[in-house]
């Protein structure tokens, strides 16, 4: 009985010690996260890299099941959808004709000018495997990572428009911060008036348009594309259209389809070569200057 009590007491003391250690460790981790953020974020990505792909066998059936349900719901709308699509197709045929003609003209003009297109723009296609799961941040996890040549800051697009940028890369996974995230700011140009602005995410479906040059000229429906300022995104990626919200603020209706995001393209832009300094003298460079010898 006494021995049992002693064991219990020492067990309780050990437990208290472990609890104290855990609390100190977690607090230290948080402080470290504040002090040396990149290192801890790399650690976090390593954990995610190990854990999330293993969870896929849990994620997959639930995801498939709920997609089947939402697909089934869409059957009820299928007739209306069909009519709409038919009308849209009619309009698209007109555009297709226009695009073909433009392409031909473009090709002719290129041939005339001997234009060289940027060879640096290549892409990797990845699948979005998870949501962020948090109300405070809008991000997703991709199934491609450093092994596929993904780097921090690369632009991500779906079929139509910009989705976000890569932030956090592990060996086989990487994280996209969506345009809707509160920490996402993208320099843009509003077409066709050409005024510059910033698209600022606000954790809701329609990001704000801020710091606009010549606000009075901006009309709803104008297209918004990346400007390429700051060197993070390549220029001229479509983001969406300008809309006014109910309180008269300018927002963006995003072109990318955030409700059915499955495959995205990560644009592997190689950084442009920097031109540093002015050019040197033209001609054969003299490597040795004779210092010995008689001066005349």
């Amino acid at each position: 009985m006494a021995a049992q009590q002693q064991v219990n007491a020492s067990w309780r003391a050990l437990r208290r010690l472990v609890l104290g250690l855990i609390l100190v460790l977690f607090l230290a981790l948080f402080v470290l996260w504040r002090i040396d953020n990149p290192r801890v974020e790399r650690f976090r990505m390593a954990i995610v890299d190990r854990f999330v792909p293993n969870m896929e066998w849990v994620l997959a059936p639930v995801t498939k099941f709920s997609r089947i349900i939402s697909d089934y719901q869409s059957y009820t709308l299928i007739y209306e959808r069909n009519q709409e699509l038919r009308q849209e197709l009619q309009r698209m045929k007109g555009w297709q004709e226009a695009a073909l003609q433009l392409e031909q003209t473009n090709a002719q003009l290129r041939a005339l000018n001997n234009v060289r297109l940027s060879p640096g723009l290549r892409f990797v296609t990845g699948e979005v495997i998870t949501d962020s799961g948090s109300p405070f941040s809008q991000s997703g996890l991709l199934n491609v990572g450093r092994l596929d040549g993904i780097l921090d800051g690369q632009a991500t697009v779906d079929g139509l428009g910009l989705v976000g940028r890569i932030s956090g890369v592990a060996e086989q996974t990487s994280r996209i911060i969506f345009l809707t995230d509160a920490s996402s700011q993208v320099p843009v140009i509003i077409r066709p008036i050409g005024s510059r602005a910033i698209v600022q995410g606000e954790n809701n479906i329609a990001p704000r348009l801020l710091f606009i040059e010549s606000v009075e000229d901006v009309l709803p429906g104008m297209r918004v594309v990346t400007s390429g300022d700051g060197g993070v995104f390549p220029a001229d990626l479509l983001i969406g259209q300008v809309v006014f919200d109910s309180s008269g603020k300018l927002r963006i209706a995003l072109a990318a389809d955030f409700e059915a995001l499955e495959f995205v393209r990560i644009l592997r832009t190689s950084p442009l070569d920097q031109i540093d300094g002015v050019g040197g003298l033209v001609g054969v460079e003299r490597t040795e200057i004779p210092t010995e010898g008689p001066l005349e």
């Binding site: 639930v62 709920s66 109300p135 996890l141 809701n204 409700e259």
Partner: peptide
């Protein structure tokens, strides 16, 4: 517990929702 951690990150809808998880 693993399920409860994995459930919020299911890739269903990436548009920001009104209701917090």
């Amino acid at each position: 517990a693993l399920l409860s951690i994995a459930f919020p990150i299911l890739p269903l809808d990436f548009s920001p929702s009104r209701m917090a998880m």
